[in-house]
């Protein structure tokens, strides 16, 4: 029920929380010293995330690396995060911001699940989660305190019975497309994804979509290309599929790579061998 209004300057609240959280309202005596510190650069980062719509669902791929600058610091990080039954995030960018995001969204989903138990409360659709992320990222960039990530939201829309794929980033920039890629993937993988998608579906996307096997093959090819050319990537990645059945995330896997050609390569320097 509605709370009793509390006295203007009381030092405790109805829950006896101590010390009372202080909000900055004008006359606050011990305000921050100097400007508020914000995330001004990403530290531990994840590289490309790829997304592709296929027959009956959407696939999202990301490798397992979290880099510290050029150091391959953490090599068993999962960058695919399921949210409820029919949504999954693939996250690039700052991994501590990603962890914070996971914590916040998981808390929200727990709350939503609890409501769904007692009420005819619809669960959050992929579209709802995308809208929430868009607003969150745009609000934070507008406070000059960005959430330093680029996120792919993959999902299955239960109402429309169709797949969902969208992008949000630290500027609050948003868009949807049948194939998506973040970071280096936007340069290296996106052309390959579009070529494969349009070869079957046509430029207007009206034709048949890729089958699950074809989509997986294309993503594996793309992850291999990224491993060959993106110095911040790792040949250990996961692919998630989101269908009407729900979310499933694969075990980590590797692409077959070929390095024999390197034997014959000679650099420009002194030929010592």
């Amino acid at each position: 029920m509605w709370k009793q209004p509390s006295p203007a300057n009381s030092s405790f609240n109805e829950f006896n929380t101590f010390p009372l959280p202080q909000t900055q309202r004008g006359q606050s005596s011990h305000a921050h010293h100097g400007p508020v510190g914000h995330t001004q650069q990403p530290l531990v980062t994840g590289t490309s995330v790829l997304g592709l719509k296929y027959e009956g669902g959407v696939m999202i791929a990301a490798d397992n690396l979290a880099s510290y600058g050029s150091l391959a610091r953490f090599r068993d990080i999962q960058r695919l995060h399921p949210l409820g039954k029919h949504t999954l995030l693939g996250v690039a960018g700052d991994m501590s911001d990603f962890q914070w995001l996971k914590k916040e969204l998981d808390a929200l989903l727990r709350e939503e699940d609890a409501l769904a138990l007692t009420d005819s409360h619809p669960s959050l659709s992929p579209k709802n989660i995308y809208e929430l992320l868009s607003n969150l990222f745009y609000a934070r960039r507008s406070k000059m305190n960005p959430v330093w990530n680029a996120v792919l939201v993959g999902g299955w829309d239960k109402v429309k019975q169709e797949s969902f794929l969208a992008y949000v980033d630290l500027l609050g920039t948003t868009y949807t497309a049948p194939t998506l890629a973040t970071g280096f993937g936007a340069h290296l993988a996106q052309p390959l994804l579009r070529e494969a998608y349009e070869a079957k579906a046509g430029i207007d996307g009206n034709g048949p979509l890729l089958t699950k096997e074809e989509a997986e093959k294309v993503l594996e090819d793309c992850m291999k290309v990224l491993f060959y050319r993106d110095a911040r990537s790792l040949n250990k990645y996961q692919i998630a599929t989101i269908t009407s059945e729900g979310v499933s995330i694969s075990d980590s896997k590797s692409a077959d790579t070929y390095w024999k050609f390197a034997e014959g390569l000679r650099g420009y320097g002194a030929q010592t061998q």
């Binding site: 914000h38 001004q40 650069q41 960039r141 507008s142 000059m144 500027l171 920039t173």
Partner: peptide
């Protein structure tokens, strides 16, 4: 110094 640029051109 790397300052966050809140704008882009689309």
């Amino acid at each position: 110094e790397h300052r966050f640029n809140p704008y882009s051109d689309n």
